[in-house]
Design a binder for these strands. Structure first.
Length: 880
RNA sequence: GCCGGAGUGGCGAAAUCGGUAUACGCACCAGACUCAAAAUCUGGCGGGCUUAACGCCCAUGUCGGUUCGAGUCCGACCUCCGGCACCA
């Protein structure tokens, strides 16, 4: 702060301190450093911090498996990785480092939790978790993948647990609508995935009156004609309601629970079956088979008055909409499948537009809209799920789907049996974890006062220093009496602490604010400091965080805004998602589990294109191969330390930026990096060659009487063209092409056939300008080399920043070519190239093209129909 | 299944607004330097045809369209990658 320069906040996603940096990190942080350095050289006051996402499962797993202390393990890893980052020379402000597991940080996780609790944004409810009966432990989704416990291999079940939730759904519309503010700075696919994740869906609620099969219609009427309850369904296609053949509800639906006592044995058994099936985590590989049963209950379609059976269906989710749907098999694929399986009637009520007009004309012999054969959808096979024209739909027949939706929704609202409704896929954020290595949730359970929050002044609720973590049983903290036993903050009586800890996404939802004010022990961040540095100007990270982390961080920012802590809606103005760094892997999966072999031990046969034909392990087993994200356990990892050791940090960084566009997947190829080393060495040799000249020329102005051609002019032209290219590329976050441009500039210096000893003043000046520009533009990619070169150019050791050096300034006159080559096409084919002045007038260019000898070979004796002149670019002649 | 993205040399890739396709690098080949090798430097490097030389034809996944002109725009298809996955 307190800088006259404009601020720029460059941020990269913080790493989990696993113990080792991998190439994905190198790519991410190299890109971030390019941005940070570029902005520094462009005169910005740059904030470029790093920290540690240091709570989470791996530390706890290490504790369970190897008996290490998670805190010590984590701190040691941080130290190692900090060393790796420093060896790479990423320009971080280390004084701002944060680590989620330190009390100074998680104190404010808790602070935020209390603030949210006060505002009704944090609440408790019962929900299901993955549970291993054998280990007596809750499992994350990946620990329960395949339906088996990762540790003991026994089947995983679901268990009801009271859990804390944050009300992300209070912000659903903002999370969706505020995307407009960041539309231009975020990748389209990330925005799209967020939109899909939130899943806004507009439709209507419709109430179906339930008739108890035990009572006759007459009895219902006698009781006042009003059925005692309703099933409310959510539909986006109210226009298809005349085609409903049933109301299908989830097995947990209240109407089922309510009537449980009167269902026959068969129905109860099915309910039991569906529920227990849901207990097993679904295997996403295979699609579940539709299942269900008629409950015997009847519901009345409020539009047609038709009585429909109420079914239980395993495909209806209690968590979405109302947990009940109207089944319209003719116009919904799931309902169609369900109806076919259980032989339910299928009635078409929407026909395609062309079929609708045909039906209208065929009214005598063929189908009419008011009386369609059941399976008719106008030639196309059922289910017909598009919009069309309504048929068999009473008074609505003949209207379009759009009209029908609008008018029928209004009609339902008028009559009091429905209303327009919007539902979302997004749920509230469950943050409870039955784990040790996370931020304790600062709540207290008192026998007389109930759930009571911890006092702000007593934060943080600290994790115990040492603890035995077995990985079994309830939350590990529950077994630590010193932690659990406390007093009620309200009545002072003995009470128990909450023993769940927070999801680690909590830590990463606001860490970028903490960097701006890292030592504040009163507040997470002071408002004025936050408002100076944030929002983040450029965020860079892996696109695997496109949904969860980025939605939670956006949510958190909106909450902070509502708490008066920041003055904006969106935390990240621009987002860049980098592709993964991947490598070849070799494995044996004959046992059902992938057993990876180190590439060094694998014999590979490749075809001419380098594609792998076959691979054999050292013991002769035939291996499968794949391209996967680099990781140590898969054997395709490259250790950044080793790379730095062999090639140097600059070459490693330069190559990672050069090899491919940042958003592409990067298939690791060791050979390429040698090119980066060669380039840096070549530049260094050039500097050394011109060393004496560079220092002699100094800051001297361009000598007078420059010639219009010759090597000096040519080099200056190239220098300024390169400045423009690099500047533009970095502005648009392209990192591979500016490296190519710098290589070209270096080649141009080399191509100048002038000996330093014989160079004219003009040439000396041009070389100095080229080398100085090269050094400065190289800084973001290879800061160490650049600094060294710069010190030669500057004649001092103070460094780029201390010398107040800035990004070279582009001069359009100097960049302009003396002559340009203009292609001439005849009938679309390239026939000649003219060398002309870049300022040539269109008419002159046209004449030059017409009279060109080579062009005339193709035009003589033919009629010129048309000549297209693209100013200063191209001439195209059409002949007949 | 639905939605999105991408297909350019042996490889990673470049190509502003529809205007010289293949920049830059890797790999490879040849030459210089060297007793030799490494390093370095120089040159070559999409395919085909032809010539003493100039040159000509074809090529950006496939097929078609628009245009004086298409890697770029439009339509259909093929392949690969990613996301979602009973969301009513």
């Amino acid at each position: 702060m307190e800088s006259p320069k404009p601020k720029f906040y460059a941020l990269e996603m913080l790493p989990y301190p696993s113990g080792n940096l991998h190439m994905g990190h190198v790519r991410n942080y190299s890109a971030g450093d390019v941005v940070a350095w570029y902005k520094r050289l462009k005169g910005f006051n740059v904030l470029h911090p790093i920290g540690w996402d240091s709570f989470g499962q791996p530390a706890e797993d290490a504790a369970i498996k190897r008996g290490v202390n998670p805190r010590e393990w984590t701190e040691a890893n941080i130290e190692t990785m900090q060393g790796q980052l420093q060896r790479l020379g990423i320009s971080y402000d280390w004084s701002r480092q944060m680590a989620a597991h330190r009390p100074e940080y998680y104190k404010f996780d808790q602070w935020f939790f209390l603030k949210m609790y006060e505002r009704g944004l944090a609440y408790k409810k019962k929900t299901q978790v993955n549970w291993c009966e054998t280990d007596q432990a809750t499992l994350s989704n990946e620990q329960a993948s395949g339906g088996l416990c990762w540790r003991c291999g026994n089947p995983v079940t679901k268990k009801d647990l009271e859990q804390w939730f944050l009300k992300t759904t209070d912000y659903t519309d903002q999370l969706l609508d505020d995307m407009a503010e960041i539309e231009s700075g975020w990748p389209q696919n990330v925005l799209k995935r967020q939109r899909d994740w939130i899943g806004r869906s507009e439709g209507a609620y419709v109430d179906f009156a339930v008739r108890d099969p035990g009572l006759s219609r007459a009895a219902h009427a006698a009781e006042g004609g009003v059925p005692e309850n309703h099933i409310r369904v959510f539909t986006t296609r109210i226009d298809t309601i005349y085609g409903a053949n049933a109301v299908v509800v989830a097995a947990e639906h209240p109407v089922i629970v309510e009537h449980l006592s009167q269902f026959p044995e068969k129905v109860l058994a099915k309910i039991q079956h569906i529920r227990s099936e849901k207990m097993n985590p679904t295997d996403h590989e295979s699609e579940a088979v539709k299942d269900g049963i008629d409950t015997g209950l009847r519901a009345v379609n409020p539009f047609s008055g038709e009585e429909l059976p109420v079914w239980i269906g395993n495909y209806v989710m209690m968590e979405y909409g109302t947990g009940a749907v109207m089944s319209v098999p003719a116009h919904d694929e799931r309902d169609f499948e369900f109806a076919e399986k259980f032989r339910l009637p299928i009635k078409a009520v929407i026909v395609s537009e062309p079929a609708a007009s045909a039906a209208g004309q065929l009214s005598d012999a063929g189908p009419t809209l008011a009386n369609l054969p059941p399976a008719y959808a106008g030639g196309s096979d059922l289910p017909f799920t598009d919009y069309g024209v309504m048929a068999n739909s009473g008074e609505w027949t003949g209207k379009t789907s759009e009209q029908g939706k609008r008018e029928m929704t209004a009609f339902a609202a008028e009559r009091g049996f429905g209303e327009a409704a919007t539902t979302y896929r997004l749920r509230d954020w469950g943050i409870s974890r039955q784990r040790f290595w996370g931020s304790p949730i600062p709540m207290i359970y008192c026998a007389s006062c109930g759930i009571v929050p911890e006092k702000y002044e007593d934060l943080p609720v600290r994790l115990p220093d040492s603890i035995e973590i077995t990985g079994t049983g309830e939350s590990p903290l529950a077994k630590v009496p010193e932690f659990v036993n406390t007093t009620c903050t309200k009545c002072g009586e003995p009470a128990r602490r909450e023993t769940d800890t927070m999801d680690t996404f909590v830590d990463s939802s606001w860490y970028y604010y903490r960097y701006t004010d890292p030592h504040n022990d009163e507040l997470p961040v002071a408002r004025e400091i936050a408002n100076y540095w944030t929002p983040v100007d450029q965020y860079i990270g892996g696109d695997d965080h496109a949904v969860m982390h980025l939605i939670y961080a956006r949510f958190w920012t909106k909450v902070m805004r509502d708490l008066g802590m920041v003055g904006f809606d969106e935390p990240f103005k621009r987002l860049l998602t980098q592709g993964m760094v991947v490598g070849e892997t070799f494995f044996d999966d004959s046992t059902g589990k992938r057993k990876y072999h180190m590439p060094a031990d694998v014999t590979v046969e490749r075809d001419a294109k380098g594609k792998i034909m076959s691979a054999k392990g050292s013991d002769g087993t035939v291996l499968k191969h794949s391209i996967e994200r680099m990781s140590k356990s898969k054997g395709n990892g490259v250790d950044p330390d080793e790379m730095v050791e062999i090639y140097g940090a600059d070459a490693a960084r330069l190559f990672v930026m050069f090899a491919a566009p940042i958003e592409n997947e990067l298939v690791w190829n060791e050979a390429g990096i040698e090119g980066a080393v060669r380039f840096l060495q070549r530049v260094w040799r050039q500097v050394y060659r011109w060393k004496d000249v560079l220092q002699a020329v100094g800051e001297k102005e361009q000598p007078d009487g420059q010639s219009s051609a010759g090597p000096a002019r040519k080099l200056r032209q190239k220098t300024h063209q390169t400045i423009r290219r690099v500047d533009e590329s970095l502005n648009t976050l392209q990192f591979n092409t500016p490296v190519a441009a710098l290589m070209e500039l270096s080649n141009a210096i080399g191509d100048m056939q002038v000996e330093p000893a014989n160079a004219s003043d003009e040439e000396k000046f041009a070389v100095r300008e080229a080398i100085e520009s090269l050094a400065l533009m190289l800084t973001p990619f290879a800061p160490h080399t650049a600094e060294e070169i710069y010190s030669v150019v500057a004649g001092n050791e103070k460094g780029i920043i201390a010398n107040a050096a800035s990004f070279p300034v582009f001069n359009a006159d100097l960049a302009k070519a003396d002559e340009v080559e203009i292609p001439v096409q005849v009938n679309g084919k390239l026939r000649a190239k003219l060398t002309v002045s870049p300022d040539i007038a269109d008419d002159d260019l046209r004449d030059a093209a017409k009279t060109d000898e080579k062009v005339r070979e193709y035009t003589d004796g033919k009629e010129i129909v048309k000549i297209v002149v693209v100013p200063k670019r191209l001439v195209s002649i059409v002949v007949k």
